[in-house]
Design a protein around this nucleic acid. Sequence first.
DNA 1: GCAGAAAATGTAAACGTTTACAGCGCCCTC
DNA 2: GAGGGCGCTGTAAACGTTTACATTTTCTGC
Lengths: 334, 334
Amino acid sequence: MAGSATIKHVAKEAGVSVATVSRVMNKSALVAEGTRQVVLEVAARLGYTPHGAARSLITNRTSTVGVLLPDLYGEFFSEVIRGIDQTARREGYHVIVSSSHSDQQDLESALRSMWGRVDGLILMIPDIRVAGIASQLPDGFPVVLMNCAGDTNGHDAISIANYEGAYSMVQHLIGKGHRRIAIIKGADKNYDANERLRGYRAALRDAALPGEAALEVAGDFSEASGYDAASGLARLDPRPTAIFAFNDAMAVGALSAIREARLRVPEDIAVAGFDDIPMARYVEPPLSSVHVDISALGARAATLLLGAIQHPNGRENRREIVPTALVVRRSCGS
Amino acid sequence: MAGSATIKHVAKEAGVSVATVSRVMNKSALVAEGTRQVVLEVAARLGYTPHGAARSLITNRTSTVGVLLPDLYGEFFSEVIRGIDQTARREGYHVIVSSSHSDQQDLESALRSMWGRVDGLILMIPDIRVAGIASQLPDGFPVVLMNCAGDTNGHDAISIANYEGAYSMVQHLIGKGHRRIAIIKGADKNYDANERLRGYRAALRDAALPGEAALEVAGDFSEASGYDAASGLARLDPRPTAIFAFNDAMAVGALSAIREARLRVPEDIAVAGFDDIPMARYVEPPLSSVHVDISALGARAATLLLGAIQHPNGRENRREIVPTALVVRRSCGS
DNA sequence: GCAGAAAATGTAAACGTTTACAGCGCCCTC
DNA sequence: GAGGGCGCTGTAAACGTTTACATTTTCTGC
């Protein structure tokens, strides 16, 4: 295929003006059926495809949304992009992603280089230290913040019901009779992790159970960190009777560590995770978790963004929260 | 921030011509240090960022690479994008992704709408039925085919050592004394799955072992399909002594099914997977697998593509294969 | 047949850049 | 003091579209 044909080539070949070709391609204005046929035939023969950049320049629309993500591992990333992409594509939008942004510097330059290439942005900045960057954006530029800390200062925002999810899991464990419930925290300074921590502590407080520093151990969302954390917890005396890992990957690592310590799940130690990844039901024992519909998170974010793009007049800023659901399986003694 | 400033605004405000501003921004031509300072100061004050589309239009470069993916689940997607994105960004390129393409129709329209927005494409079309689409592309347009079937007709290609990986795993199992080795195949018409199947059969043949239709059962790369497949296999009489699932997700499903059938792994049935996802070592028993460095696959693809973009003169078409490594753990009796 | 409206098409400006070319000072050299 | 080179800057065309407006063609009703 040629592929390098421009609208002018088509116009010349079809014996019409560029305006007519443009009208045909946009199936908009009223153009005689005969002409239309000729133009379409020529366009097909020449393999003509409108040039995206030229089009964006004049229309001031790129039909593209940008997504800025931190350095994410595992299925989360996949799922959230899937949700965004499917929703966006249904409305005729592209998705341009840029991932693995750690520091502010990095983020800013990624942000700038997207200027003029996207009609709006979905920003996922779970590290609360750099969340302030959102204010650097042009006024009135459509932005949706995803899993970001508190003040959304003038932007739409969406997040997961971290607090509620963690709260309900801990409440469930307490209901099962557990009194010493340990947690494996997520990455430091991470918004979601902090919210889950708040939920955990609130549930303890509401049940009049004492917190205990030794029961709150650090993790970084990886299987290995869950393994390490649980190894330590298993040696504690008195031992916790339950371990709530702030994601499933760490929970799986914990299961492995507990097994090696020759303890039984859930009899000696109950285990729970967060996310409910597909694999959760297939590990041994099947893992209790807080179910999160991640692709829905992406889809909702995209919907929010497209709304903001298509109706730029000062809408109220919305903050949406996608709900979680408690999934009880054998790992905490269902 | 304003964000809507154009080069003209900056030029006027700084009392110079647009050409000078352009030169400053591209830090290319030699411009007097004094002028440079003034322009930079004004640009910063006005929050000026060059308009991507306008720039691409004139330079005919978008600094963006496109990635077309099928409907992918799990970590594969994440990892491959990570590899691509990191490599591309290092060279100053953006990545625009479009996923979840099932049929040819869908793929074609996605392809067209990227025209003029990308300098090159990474195409992952594992479904061998639509692989022919690559020939629809403009001549000389940089393209890298990823995990695609055979004839790369004029394009660079990269894939995983599926055949070799599967071969070596089966060879290992045979070496362990297994004679009835079942497999759980991947999605039908999937290139990788077919290659792994070839590897399996070749290994059997080379060891003079008979194939058997009942030992080759269908799967679709999901945990659930692995579970179902293994349930069936466990009821077979005589039972296979080993099950090789064509990815780890199915292997985990299989472990779960075998456990429910009250059989032991690896004593009654050994199990092996493909991919070596991070979780493989944490399941019970730790899963033997064929290790694949997926992000390296993405990174190599990006490198290949950037090479083709930057040196458009007719290079030889390359076909790269990223190697796999056998990882033996307890699930097949290490 | 004709005026006038409606339908179809063409003309040209605009979008925000980059860049070839031209122009202007200025200094150096003879 | 004229000529030439050099360093810096400006002018304007070009990239491939869309679209307001102008123009031509075709109807319509009388």
